[in-house]
Design a protein around this nucleic acid. Structure first.
Lengths: 208, 208
DNA sequence: TAGATTGTTAATCGATTAACAATC
DNA sequence: TAGATTGTTAATCGATTAACAATC
């Protein structure tokens, strides 16, 4: 079951967390107006979103920056370490493995899988590429909680099944596939081609 | 000004296009129910979405697959070629340059930029990495319509400004920054860390 | 006190979907 | 005709935001 915070709000909480780091360090508090400006949203939106997490706001003053950061990190579950496994050691998978932003947010890539015999056994960032068959064992052994799918579309469902079977309940899917899975498995889909196609649509609108 | 199709619908049109390729080739038509199943949405949603583009649907029969595919491609502007420039030749930028899904959809990466002197002059997929200073000239010369930002966050606004100055009106931004830009510039933001943070939130909810 | 800004209500807006008439 | 399925309406649901009382 999902939490009681609206999904649109949940999706903006990481944005607010990031915007807090843009607040000058000599500033102990910041206003919803300032956060809104930085996040590119409406100030009322900021206050409404934050109201779900009982924020450290003071009327006439604003939000305590340090306390709000700590609260957002706690609410988002970033105070725990999250171990991530990536399936697909192609260009995208490797880029994700080496992506500096993950470590900064407390996500650690601890396993990398591929089906290509030429890749299995090679290392990326000190991780040995393992075959899909080992997903079950390694996910359990390394206590992986998040699975990332960076395989071609044909392999995506197979990998997803293996992740789910191994107990993974959170999947970030870069393959252009709609994954079948139990209701308690949360999937976020990032489709790079789709993003370009949406841009292409709006380009056509401007011209006409 | 954006088109009259609701934004939520526009974002689903690429999905329907993709789902059409999952229809068996011996099947000339498909129903909204079939498309919905494949896309993971409600059948009424499919019909409503398609109703905005005057679809080749016949009551009691379904949608003509070939015609619907052609219509979706035309509506999304995929019948034109789109030239893409990528800023940032790190792991992510290179993976995007080599991403096979782009070419398949008619998007061609024609320029690659970086600020690192060690990278400038090297080639990725037969593209020579050029410095940010050349964005203006090369974007104009190569008729780039879409700019992709795969730089660290500090460089993102500078690159965006150069793209916009050069006439780019569509930007796909992978940097965790909220870009300032004129109202007629469409920006899609893909933040990989944010996606993991959203997953982390829902993980916390399940446990409690 | 006067000024600032939150927290919250209520209005508005947009998106989703059940239901069904239209019609192949 | 009977069965199937679209196209569309209207109800519902959820998200956004203007407005303002609360209060520091």
């Amino acid at each position: 079951m999902k939490g009681s915070i609206p999904t649109a709000t949940v999706a903006r909480l990481p944005l607010y967390l990031r915007c807090l780091s843009e607040v000058p360090t000599d500033q102990a508090t910041c206003s919803s107006e300032q956060l809104a400006e930085s996040a590119g949203v409406n100030p009322a939106q900021v206050r409404k979103d934050l109201s779900y997490i009982n924020p450290p706001g003071v009327r006439g003053v604003g939000y305590d920056v340090a306390q709000l950061r700590a609260l957002l990190r706690r609410e988002l579950g970033l105070t725990k370490e999250h171990r991530v496994a990536i399936a697909g050691a192609g260009n995208l998978g490797n880029a994700l493995t080496l992506y500096p932003g993950f470590n900064e947010s407390g996500f650690h890539v601890v396993a990398l899988f591929d089906t290509d015999p030429a890749k299995i056994g090679t290392t990326v960032d000190s991780l040995t590429v393992e075959p899909f068959e080992k997903i079950g064992g390694i996910v359990a052994a390394k206590d992986v909680s998040i699975g990332v799918i960076a395989t071609p579309v044909d392999a995506a469902q197979d990998v997803a099944d293996r992740f789910v079977e191994a107990g993974v309940r959170s999947i970030l899917n870069f393959a252009p596939a709609v994954l079948k899975r139990p209701a308690d498995v949360e999937v976020r889909r990032v489709d790079l081609s789709t993003e370009l196609q949406i841009l292409a649509y709006y380009e056509g609108q401007v011209e006409s």
